[in-house]
Protein backbone atom coordinates (compact mmCIF):
# COMPACT_ATOMS: atom_id res chain seq x y z
CA UNK A 1 0.00 0.00 0.00
CA UNK A 2 1.05 3.52 -0.78
CA UNK A 3 2.35 5.56 2.14
CA UNK A 4 -0.13 8.16 3.20
CA UNK A 5 0.75 11.81 3.07
CA UNK A 6 -1.51 13.04 5.83
CA UNK A 7 -3.99 10.20 6.33
CA UNK A 8 -7.02 12.40 5.84
CA UNK A 9 -10.38 11.10 4.74
CA UNK A 10 -10.10 13.22 1.61
CA UNK A 11 -6.76 11.63 0.77
CA UNK A 12 -8.11 8.11 1.24
CA UNK A 13 -11.14 8.74 -0.94
CA UNK A 14 -9.05 10.32 -3.67
CA UNK A 15 -6.57 7.45 -3.54
CA UNK A 16 -9.41 4.97 -3.82
CA UNK A 17 -10.61 6.74 -6.93
CA UNK A 18 -13.95 7.80 -5.44
CA UNK A 19 -15.53 10.84 -7.10
CA UNK A 20 -15.16 13.18 -4.14
CA UNK A 21 -17.40 16.05 -3.15
CA UNK A 22 -16.16 19.09 -1.24
CA UNK A 23 -17.97 22.28 -0.33
CA UNK A 24 -17.19 25.63 1.10
CA UNK A 25 -17.91 26.89 4.58
CA UNK A 26 -17.28 30.58 5.11
CA UNK A 27 -16.71 31.53 8.78
CA UNK A 28 -18.83 34.36 10.18
CA UNK A 29 -17.80 38.00 10.58
CA UNK A 30 -18.44 37.77 14.30
CA UNK A 31 -18.19 35.23 17.10
CA UNK A 32 -21.52 33.74 16.09
CA UNK A 33 -21.30 30.02 16.67
CA UNK A 34 -24.77 29.39 15.34
CA UNK A 35 -23.73 30.50 11.88
CA UNK A 36 -21.07 27.81 11.80
CA UNK A 37 -23.32 25.25 13.47
CA UNK A 38 -26.07 25.64 10.89
CA UNK A 39 -23.62 25.42 8.00
CA UNK A 40 -22.12 22.29 9.58
CA UNK A 41 -25.55 20.68 9.75
CA UNK A 42 -26.34 21.68 6.18
CA UNK A 43 -23.18 19.96 4.96
CA UNK A 44 -23.02 16.99 7.33
CA UNK A 45 -22.88 13.67 5.41
CA UNK A 46 -23.52 15.55 2.17
CA UNK A 47 -19.84 16.15 1.36
CA UNK A 48 -16.48 14.54 2.10
CA UNK A 49 -14.64 17.64 3.28
CA UNK A 50 -15.29 21.35 3.68
CA UNK A 51 -13.06 24.28 2.74
CA UNK A 52 -12.81 26.87 5.48
CA UNK A 53 -12.07 30.17 3.81
CA UNK A 54 -9.31 32.48 5.04
CA UNK A 55 -10.55 36.08 5.31
CA UNK A 56 -12.37 35.56 2.04
CA UNK A 57 -12.44 38.58 -0.28
CA UNK A 58 -10.17 40.28 2.25
CA UNK A 59 -12.92 40.67 4.83
CA UNK A 60 -12.12 39.88 8.45
CA UNK A 61 -13.77 36.69 9.67
CA UNK A 62 -13.11 33.98 12.21
CA UNK A 63 -9.75 32.50 11.25
CA UNK A 64 -9.67 29.48 9.01
CA UNK A 65 -7.68 27.21 11.30
CA UNK A 66 -9.72 27.90 14.41
CA UNK A 67 -12.97 27.38 12.50
CA UNK A 68 -11.42 24.22 11.07
CA UNK A 69 -10.73 22.88 14.54
CA UNK A 70 -14.28 23.77 15.62
CA UNK A 71 -15.79 22.08 12.59
CA UNK A 72 -13.63 18.97 13.04
CA UNK A 73 -14.94 18.63 16.59
CA UNK A 74 -18.43 18.58 15.11
CA UNK A 75 -17.41 15.69 12.89
CA UNK A 76 -16.73 17.32 9.51
CA UNK A 77 -13.38 17.09 7.78
CA UNK A 78 -11.95 20.56 7.18
CA UNK A 79 -9.64 21.79 4.47
CA UNK A 80 -8.25 24.98 5.96
CA UNK A 81 -7.15 27.69 3.58
CA UNK A 82 -4.03 29.80 3.75
CA UNK A 83 -3.61 32.95 1.69
CA UNK A 84 -0.34 34.78 1.22
CA UNK A 85 -1.94 38.18 1.69
CA UNK A 86 -2.05 38.40 5.47
CA UNK A 87 0.88 36.42 6.82
CA UNK A 88 4.57 36.00 6.16
CA UNK A 89 6.52 32.76 6.15
CA UNK A 90 7.05 32.80 9.92
CA UNK A 91 3.37 33.20 10.70
CA UNK A 92 2.27 30.65 8.11
CA UNK A 93 4.71 27.98 9.28
CA UNK A 94 3.71 28.57 12.91
CA UNK A 95 0.06 28.17 11.87
CA UNK A 96 0.84 24.97 9.99
CA UNK A 97 2.47 23.49 13.09
CA UNK A 98 -0.53 24.54 15.15
CA UNK A 99 -3.05 23.20 12.65
CA UNK A 100 -1.31 19.82 12.61
CA UNK A 101 -1.06 19.76 16.39
CA UNK A 102 -4.83 20.22 16.47
CA UNK A 103 -5.49 17.38 14.07
CA UNK A 104 -6.11 19.20 10.80
CA UNK A 105 -4.91 17.30 7.74
CA UNK A 106 -5.81 19.17 4.57
CA UNK A 107 -4.63 22.59 3.53
CA UNK A 108 -5.42 24.73 0.50
CA UNK A 109 -2.69 27.16 -0.57
CA UNK A 110 -3.90 30.37 -2.17
CA UNK A 111 -2.53 33.69 -3.35
CA UNK A 112 -5.49 35.53 -1.82
CA UNK A 113 -7.65 38.37 -3.08
CA UNK A 114 -6.03 41.79 -2.95
CA UNK A 115 -6.86 43.75 0.22
CA UNK A 116 -8.48 46.49 -1.86
CA UNK A 117 -11.51 44.20 -2.30
CA UNK A 118 -12.26 43.93 1.37
CA UNK A 119 -13.20 45.96 4.41
CA UNK A 120 -9.67 47.08 5.30
CA UNK A 121 -8.33 48.49 2.04
CA UNK A 122 -5.76 50.52 4.01
CA UNK A 123 -4.09 47.34 5.28
CA UNK A 124 -0.49 46.51 4.40
CA UNK A 125 -0.30 43.48 2.17
CA UNK A 126 2.22 40.77 2.91
CA UNK A 127 2.86 38.50 -0.08
CA UNK A 128 6.19 37.52 1.43
CA UNK A 129 5.74 34.31 -0.56
CA UNK A 130 3.28 33.45 -3.31
CA UNK A 131 0.97 30.47 -3.65
CA UNK A 132 3.48 28.37 -5.58
CA UNK A 133 6.20 29.04 -3.03
CA UNK A 134 3.68 28.25 -0.30
CA UNK A 135 2.89 24.86 -1.83
CA UNK A 136 6.60 24.06 -1.93
CA UNK A 137 7.06 25.20 1.66
CA UNK A 138 4.26 22.95 2.96
CA UNK A 139 5.58 20.07 0.90
CA UNK A 140 9.15 20.53 2.13
CA UNK A 141 7.90 20.63 5.70
CA UNK A 142 6.11 17.34 5.14
CA UNK A 143 8.53 15.44 2.90
CA UNK A 144 11.95 16.95 3.57
CA UNK A 145 11.01 17.71 7.17
CA UNK A 146 12.53 21.14 6.99
CA UNK A 147 11.37 24.68 7.51
CA UNK A 148 11.55 27.11 4.64
CA UNK A 149 14.94 28.30 5.92
CA UNK A 150 16.30 24.76 5.67
CA UNK A 151 16.38 23.90 9.38
CA UNK A 152 15.03 20.54 10.45
CA UNK A 153 11.69 20.48 12.20
CA UNK A 154 12.72 19.42 15.68
CA UNK A 155 12.50 21.16 18.99
CA UNK A 156 16.20 20.78 19.80
CA UNK A 157 19.26 19.13 18.30
CA UNK A 158 18.60 15.90 20.19
CA UNK A 159 14.84 15.90 19.86
CA UNK A 160 13.05 13.78 17.30
CA UNK A 161 11.88 15.31 14.05
CA UNK A 162 8.14 15.97 14.25
CA UNK A 163 6.95 17.43 10.99
CA UNK A 164 3.46 18.69 10.17
CA UNK A 165 1.80 16.54 7.51
CA UNK A 166 -0.87 17.81 5.18
CA UNK A 167 -2.59 16.86 1.99
CA UNK A 168 -1.75 19.90 -0.09
CA UNK A 169 -4.34 21.60 -2.22
CA UNK A 170 -4.35 24.66 -4.44
CA UNK A 171 -6.64 26.51 -6.78
CA UNK A 172 -6.52 26.69 -10.55
CA UNK A 173 -8.36 29.05 -12.81
CA UNK A 174 -8.79 27.67 -16.34
CA UNK A 175 -10.47 30.95 -17.38
CA UNK A 176 -8.00 33.65 -16.39
CA UNK A 177 -5.55 35.23 -18.81
CA UNK A 178 -3.36 34.45 -20.59
CA UNK A 179 -5.53 31.43 -21.46
CA UNK A 180 -2.66 29.61 -23.14
CA UNK A 181 -0.68 29.84 -19.92
CA UNK A 182 -3.25 28.26 -17.62
CA UNK A 183 -2.17 24.63 -17.95
CA UNK A 184 1.45 25.71 -17.53
CA UNK A 185 0.49 27.40 -14.31
CA UNK A 186 -1.12 24.18 -13.14
CA UNK A 187 2.06 22.35 -14.07
CA UNK A 188 4.09 24.80 -12.01
CA UNK A 189 1.89 23.96 -9.03
CA UNK A 190 2.36 20.26 -9.70
CA UNK A 191 6.11 20.79 -9.83
CA UNK A 192 5.89 22.61 -6.51
CA UNK A 193 4.23 19.54 -4.99
CA UNK A 194 0.47 20.04 -4.92
CA UNK A 195 -1.72 16.96 -4.30
CA UNK A 196 -5.15 18.22 -5.28
CA UNK A 197 -6.67 21.15 -7.13
CA UNK A 198 -10.01 22.87 -6.80
CA UNK A 199 -10.82 24.97 -9.82
CA UNK A 200 -12.42 28.39 -10.04
CA UNK A 201 -16.17 28.07 -10.54
CA UNK A 202 -16.99 26.83 -13.99
CA UNK A 203 -19.76 28.11 -16.24
CA UNK A 204 -18.00 27.78 -19.59
CA UNK A 205 -18.05 24.02 -19.94
CA UNK A 206 -16.42 24.02 -23.39
CA UNK A 207 -13.43 25.98 -22.18
CA UNK A 208 -13.14 23.75 -19.13
CA UNK A 209 -13.25 20.65 -21.33
CA UNK A 210 -10.46 22.07 -23.50
CA UNK A 211 -8.39 22.80 -20.42
CA UNK A 212 -8.97 19.30 -19.07
CA UNK A 213 -8.01 17.74 -22.39
CA UNK A 214 -4.70 19.54 -22.28
CA UNK A 215 -4.22 18.57 -18.63
CA UNK A 216 -4.84 14.92 -19.51
CA UNK A 217 -2.67 15.02 -22.63
CA UNK A 218 0.24 16.18 -20.49
CA UNK A 219 -0.49 13.47 -17.93
CA UNK A 220 -0.97 16.01 -15.17
CA UNK A 221 -4.18 14.34 -13.96
CA UNK A 222 -2.03 11.44 -12.86
CA UNK A 223 0.06 13.67 -10.67
CA UNK A 224 -2.67 15.79 -9.14
CA UNK A 225 -6.34 15.19 -8.36
CA UNK A 226 -8.56 17.76 -9.97
CA UNK A 227 -11.87 18.79 -8.44
CA UNK A 228 -14.07 20.87 -10.72
CA UNK A 229 -15.50 23.96 -9.05
CA UNK A 230 -19.15 25.00 -9.30
CA UNK A 231 -21.20 27.80 -7.80
CA UNK A 232 -24.97 27.39 -8.06
CA UNK A 233 -26.68 30.50 -9.38
CA UNK A 234 -29.49 31.93 -7.30
CA UNK A 235 -30.66 34.73 -9.55
CA UNK A 236 -30.04 36.37 -12.89
CA UNK A 237 -28.68 39.38 -11.01
CA UNK A 238 -26.07 37.24 -9.31
CA UNK A 239 -25.06 35.70 -12.62
CA UNK A 240 -24.62 39.11 -14.24
CA UNK A 241 -22.74 40.40 -11.23
CA UNK A 242 -20.35 37.46 -11.43
CA UNK A 243 -19.84 38.04 -15.14
CA UNK A 244 -19.17 41.76 -14.77
CA UNK A 245 -17.49 42.09 -11.40
CA UNK A 246 -15.76 38.90 -10.29
CA UNK A 247 -12.25 38.66 -11.68
CA UNK A 248 -11.39 35.44 -13.43
CA UNK A 249 -14.96 34.16 -13.88
CA UNK A 250 -16.08 33.56 -17.44
CA UNK A 251 -19.79 33.20 -18.22
CA UNK A 252 -20.81 32.46 -21.79
CA UNK A 253 -23.82 34.22 -23.31
CA UNK A 254 -25.61 30.90 -23.72
CA UNK A 255 -25.66 30.48 -19.93
CA UNK A 256 -26.93 34.02 -19.41
CA UNK A 257 -29.64 33.31 -22.01
CA UNK A 258 -30.63 30.11 -20.23
CA UNK A 259 -31.18 32.00 -16.99
CA UNK A 260 -32.98 34.85 -18.73
CA UNK A 261 -35.44 32.34 -20.12
CA UNK A 262 -35.83 30.39 -16.91
CA UNK A 263 -39.02 30.76 -14.88
CA UNK A 264 -37.36 30.06 -11.58
CA UNK A 265 -33.70 31.05 -11.42
CA UNK A 266 -33.00 29.15 -8.19
CA UNK A 267 -34.32 25.89 -9.60
CA UNK A 268 -32.49 26.50 -12.83
CA UNK A 269 -29.33 27.19 -10.85
CA UNK A 270 -29.56 23.85 -9.13
CA UNK A 271 -30.42 22.01 -12.33
CA UNK A 272 -27.52 23.58 -14.17
CA UNK A 273 -25.18 22.61 -11.37
CA UNK A 274 -26.41 19.02 -11.32
CA UNK A 275 -26.00 18.76 -15.10
CA UNK A 276 -22.48 20.08 -14.79
CA UNK A 277 -21.56 17.52 -12.14
CA UNK A 278 -22.96 14.70 -14.26
CA UNK A 279 -20.81 15.91 -17.14
CA UNK A 280 -17.72 16.16 -14.94
CA UNK A 281 -18.17 12.58 -13.86
CA UNK A 282 -17.75 11.50 -17.46
CA UNK A 283 -14.70 13.67 -18.11
CA UNK A 284 -11.36 12.01 -18.02
CA UNK A 285 -9.14 13.34 -15.25
CA UNK A 286 -11.82 14.95 -13.09
CA UNK A 287 -11.56 13.44 -9.62
CA UNK A 288 -14.43 15.21 -7.95
CA UNK A 289 -16.42 18.36 -7.54
CA UNK A 290 -16.05 21.37 -5.29
CA UNK A 291 -19.35 23.13 -4.59
CA UNK A 292 -19.02 26.78 -3.61
CA UNK A 293 -22.58 27.63 -2.63
CA UNK A 294 -21.75 31.02 -1.22
CA UNK A 295 -24.06 31.72 1.73
CA UNK A 296 -26.34 29.03 0.32
CA UNK A 297 -25.01 25.94 2.04
CA UNK A 298 -28.55 24.58 2.27
CA UNK A 299 -28.54 23.98 -1.46
CA UNK A 300 -25.59 21.58 -1.35
CA UNK A 301 -27.29 18.41 -0.13
CA UNK A 302 -29.99 18.62 -2.81
CA UNK A 303 -27.39 19.13 -5.52
CA UNK A 304 -25.30 16.19 -4.36
CA UNK A 305 -28.38 14.00 -4.12
CA UNK A 306 -29.70 14.94 -7.56
CA UNK A 307 -26.26 14.24 -8.98
CA UNK A 308 -26.62 10.67 -7.59
CA UNK A 309 -23.71 11.16 -5.25
CA UNK A 310 -25.46 10.26 -1.98
CA UNK A 311 -24.76 8.60 0.33
CA UNK A 312 -21.14 9.65 0.61
CA UNK A 313 -18.67 6.76 0.90
CA UNK A 314 -17.11 5.72 4.15
CA UNK A 315 -13.75 7.35 4.73
CA UNK A 316 -12.04 4.49 6.53
Amino acid sequence: MKNSKAGSRLEKLLDRGEFVVTAELGPPKSVDREVIDSKVEALRDAVDAVNITDNQTAIVRVSSISTGIYVAEKGLEPIFQVTCRDRNRLAIQADLLGACLNGLKNVLCLTGDHQSFGNHPQAKQVYDIDSIQLIKMVKDMRDEKIFQCGEEIRNSKKAEIREPRFLIGAAANPFADPLEWRVNRLEKKVNAGVDFIQTQCIYDMERFEQWMEEVVSRGLHEKVKILAGVTPIRSLGMLRYMRDSVAGVRIPDSVIKRFEDAENAREEGINFCVEQIKRFRKMKGVAGVHIMAIEWENAVRGIVESADLLPRPNGV
Partner: peptide, 21 residues
Protein backbone atom coordinates in the same frame (compact mmCIF):
# COMPACT_ATOMS: atom_id res chain seq x y z
CA UNK B 1 -0.20 44.37 -7.56
CA UNK B 2 0.79 41.54 -5.25
CA UNK B 3 4.47 41.46 -6.19
CA UNK B 4 4.13 37.80 -7.13
CA UNK B 5 7.22 35.94 -8.26
CA UNK B 6 5.24 33.23 -10.04
CA UNK B 7 2.34 34.97 -11.72
CA UNK B 8 -0.09 35.65 -13.15
CA UNK B 9 -2.65 34.90 -10.47
CA UNK B 10 -6.23 33.89 -11.22
CA UNK B 11 -7.37 37.50 -11.30
CA UNK B 12 -5.73 38.41 -14.59
CA UNK B 13 -8.38 39.23 -17.20
CA UNK B 14 -8.01 40.78 -20.65
CA UNK B 15 -4.52 41.84 -19.73
CA UNK B 16 -5.73 43.79 -16.72
CA UNK B 17 -5.26 43.27 -12.99
CA UNK B 18 -8.11 42.26 -10.70
CA UNK B 19 -7.61 45.29 -8.46
CA UNK B 20 -8.64 47.75 -11.16
CA UNK B 21 -9.58 46.16 -14.48
Amino acid sequence: SKGLMNGPCGGSENGMCEIDP
